[in-house]
Amino acid sequence: MEERLKQLKQEATAQVEEAVDLKQLNDVRVAYLGKKGPITEVLKGMGKLSAEERPKMGALANEVRDDITKSIEAKQQLLEKAEIEKKLAEESIDVTLPGRPVNSGTHHPLTSVIEDIEDLFISMGYTVEEGPEVEKDYYNFEALNLPKGHPARDMQDSFYITEDILLRTHTSPVQARTMERHQGKGPVKIICPGKVYRRDNDDATHSHQFMQIEGLVVDENIRMSDLKGTLNTFAKKMFGEDREIRLRPSFFPFTEPSVEMDISCKICGGKGCSVCKGTGWIEILGAGMVHPNVLEMAGFDSKKYTGFAFGMGPERIAMLKYGIDDIRHYYANDQRFLTQFGQKEIK
């Protein structure tokens, strides 16, 4: 009997080894461990054994049964694992194929530039002011020290709607209106973005409609050095910490003294190249100390108050920042142009 059990164990183990799938393994289980299996048969013959041998044989039979069970279980784990592997292998995909696109729009590049400038000045305590695009001659010109017949009005030929109403030629009327609202009391600290219009034929460098963004600070003891420091902060934040600024005298009817600000050319590092026309400097914006006539007309006492103002063109800034070569791109809304500005620039 002992022989028989050992033989059974050997046979069963061999068959377990040979089983290639779970079904065959199950067949082995049923064949050896089932109610009609050979081990049960052997145990049935136990009655013929002596009382002494009976427990010994019983233990051996159980041991054989356990061993077979264990080997079946081990094999089962192996086969199951293989089965899963096989199934997963069948499920595998090409992970290099493109993902399902998520629709996403983009800021217009001019909006990006304007928002960047707004945010920079907001961080310095400015608020954002807006005003009408169709303006009174008074706010667009007269309140800015440009009386009727002033030669500087030629500088910006305008679109008139009536003798007295026109499309604003700059965002400066917002300054005039804001100062007026302050009723002679400082501080005024604003940044004014918006659309402006001039009689120009549209070409690579001119547009009858374009954007402007201006800043104005009016308070007691505002100095030209404050203007210079503010512009320096702006230039470094907007164009890079390594940029230098310089002021050049200029003329605007609403400021005195008036200056233009250049920044050092990034491309040639100041040595001179085609972008900076060999000067090493690139013109960025106009600025100056608010003309006393402008302060007085808006109700500020020019003996007590001083102020500075600056203004620039987001189109030009974007051109310099991104190397855009034609101002008409901004208004054609060619998706192949606009999609290039999807990436958010973070410094």
Binding site: I122, G125, D219, M224, D226, G229
Partner: peptide
Amino acid sequence: GYDHIPMTLPVHETKPGGLS
């Protein structure tokens, strides 16, 4: 020469800036 003008920032009571 504007190069000789120093760089300062306005010295006044600072109010928070922001968007409406």
